[in-house]
Design a protein around this nucleic acid. Structure first.
Lengths: 166, 166
DNA sequence: CTATTGATGTTATACTATAACATAACATTG
DNA sequence: CAATGTTATGTTATAGTATAACATCAATAG
């Protein structure tokens, strides 16, 4: 049943790995942008770094506050950088949270489903193509041609489930 | 494959049926609220009527403008009514649109998936339990216990697909 | 170099939602 | 019916999210 599910993102990342995980994301981003001939400017890189540093869904205005320590910044500054990063598949926007998260596997085109823990507020990103196909198939039963999917799931991650409902 | 899918809402509703469709939704709401011992006040009923009258995802401030023709109204007026209606399962909120839509089958607890046509802006609501179970199962493969699901699908409804990409 | 394009700075504003407190309507019970 | 508690609504203010519009700066191509 849905064996193609792949977990990634914060539920799996230990605190210890965090610096590495940011560095790795930035390196991948550099590489992908170079390959694509688009410019990962200092500003865009900084915003991506901040997104990863927070390591949970983070609002645009939170990023803005953090950006201000590096120079002048207004809302369009951060929104424009986020737009670029989304277009390049380097960050995702979470509609139900009005927040942004670094993409865990930006190297490939993929569908994404988001698991949002209501207790620790962390998030994991799935790339379950089987599920994505099931969504598209369900739409097709009523003649609807699916193009984009937003699948955001709220609940309890495993660690929080063990700790109980607290 | 996902034979339990049931279509409803606007893709199926002809213009001619529209008055009937509003009246029917209001009657059902009256009945359900009576059964549950909660109060479908005039204001709440009016907001529900407006939601159904628009017959597509509609923003809170659009509703507010329409409400003002019936008396004084400020944002909390409409948001409170919408909160009540959501709690009673009479309307759904669409996170990706910041908009609201009347629930097509409020009589039963159900999961919902939304099909949003990017061309005609209409919406259909699915209640595909098979899909909902697949979503929960996918989450479970990584130890995540799903509690709420947001599934919003953008694409082309059948009529618009026939008409071409226009 | 300079023309063009793309990126950023800057100001203002639109859109979405809620906090906080006052008042009114309704329900209960003595 | 009056007193009381509860729920709903009115009202003002403000928080939070996002974009429009235009100016300026930086990078690249010709």
């Amino acid at each position: 049943m849905l064996e193609t599910a792949t977990q990634s993102a914060s539920f799996a990342c230990k605190r210890d790995d965090h610096e590495h995980c940011i560095a790795s994301a930035l390196a991948t981003a550099e590489r992908l942008c170079a390959e694509r001939g688009v410019r990962l400017t200092r500003l865009r890189r900084k915003v991506l770094e901040l997104v990863w540093s927070n390591h949970r869904p983070v609002g645009a205005y939170e990023l803005l506050e953090q950006l201000k320590s590096c120079g002048p910044a207004a809302p369009p500054t951060v929104y424009r950088a986020l737009d670029f990063l989304q277009t390049q598949g380097l960050v995702h926007r979470l509609a139900s949270l009005n927040a942004f998260i670094g993409c865990s596997h930006p190297q490939a085109e993929h569908t994404a489903q988001f698991l949002i823990c209501r207790r620790c507020r962390n998030l994991a990103e799935l790339a379950d193509d089987g599920l994505s196909n099931a969504v598209a198939a369900s739409a097709r039963t009523v003649g609807f041609q699916a193009e984009e999917q937003m699948v955001e799931i709220v609940g309890l991650c495993e660690p929080c489930r063990r700790k109980g409902e607290g």
